[in-house]
């Protein structure tokens, strides 16, 4: 069942096209990664989904309701963490958490306390004294303490230290195990890799790649490291070989997945001593797409 769907969404600010006919769909219970560099349109997409920006063309819907028209009804069942958390300087963290939870209409005191402890936040301090990481914790705790069905998290860990990142990941797994759906925008790829079932990659307002992680890798390349007795001749002319590099262990390269068989066949003529292959990390995927 699809809980969140974007169809041919276009958003223009004056003459500037921020989003150009983007599409994606998130199923119930999925953790959906939304990745792209800064300024690609991640936050704009999320703001359209929240009904804060109005789509120029196309549709965005959550729970089958229109993101713009039925915003209030939708928001009773979603929780959101902005990428750049700005809080009210003269309210304490605890006050902001309560206010935001109440605005969503839910209230779960014990979970709130647990989360405050887990994230190690002092809720009695005024928000103006919080660092970026602490402001992010406030937004995260208020989102996670809410009883929502869909969680929209815009780069939620960009200010957290590695320890807190781990706490956050645990929380996401826990939400997932309870059947919640999560849209996670990020440019921290290891995080997306660890948490997400599906990924869409956005660049300059366009979705350039979408699918499960394995599907995406299938589309791309495999890392191969090879060591041979005889030097491999004219390897750079072989179809499907890229990024050739001589390294300590031998020769490393990226190979188009559909050409893998032919490449191995070619290499084997030079007496293979060692052959390693492993999938591209999302990091490498990313660099390839945004070069």
């Amino acid at each position: 069942m699809s809980v969140l769907k974007i169809t041919n969404l276009t958003k223009k600010f004056g003459k500037f096209t921020a989003l150009n006919r983007i599409n994606f769909e998130m199923q119930k219970g999925e953790v959906y990664g939304f990745i792209g560099p800064n300024g690609a349109g991640k936050t704009t997409t999320i703001r359209v989904l929240l009904g804060i920006l109005k789509a120029t063309e196309g549709e965005a819907s959550i729970f089958g309701m229109d993101a713009w028209r039925d915003a209030v009804e939708i928001h009773k069942r979603i929780a959101y963490v902005p990428g750049d958390v700005n809080l009210w300087g003269n309210l304490t963290g605890g006050e902001v958490i309560d206010l935001l939870v109440r605005l969503r209409g839910s209230n779960n005191k014990s979970r709130r306390e647990q989360l405050i402890e887990k994230f190690d936040l002092d809720p009695s301090k005024k928000c103006r004294t919080y660092s970026k990481g602490n402001r992010q914790k406030v937004a995260l705790i208020s989102a996670l303490a809410s009883d929502a069905d869909v969680y929209i998290l815009d780069e939620p860990t960009s200010g957290l230290d590695p320890l807190m990142e781990k706490v956050f990941q645990e929380c996401v797994f826990e939400l997932k195990s309870r059947g919640k759906s999560i849209l996670l925008s990020s440019h921290i790829l290891s995080e997306v890799e660890k948490l997400c079932d599906k990924v869409s990659i956005i660049r300059q307002g366009k979705i350039i790649e979408s699918g499960t992680l394995s599907e995406l890798r299938h589309l791309t390349r495999t890392n191969v490291i090879v060591e041979t007795k005889k030097p491999i001749e004219a390897l750079d002319t072989v179809k499907g070989v890229h990024s050739l590099n001589r390294c300590n262990q031998g020769i490393s390269m990226q190979v188009d997945t559909e050409e893998l068989g032919n490449v191995i066949k070619y290499i084997s003529e030079f007496d293979i001593v060692k052959l390693e292959s492993f999938p591209l990390t999302l990091e490498e995927l990313f660099i390839r797409h945004y070069k």
Binding site: R47, L50, G51, I52, A71, V72, E73, H75, K76, I78, Y80, P82, D84, N86, L87, W88, L100, L103, R104, G105, A139
Partner: peptide, 14 residues
Amino acid sequence: KRDRCEHLLAGAVS
């Protein structure tokens, strides 16, 4: 301007 309205509008607030 300080991006704080989105906290409110992302809640069930018209």
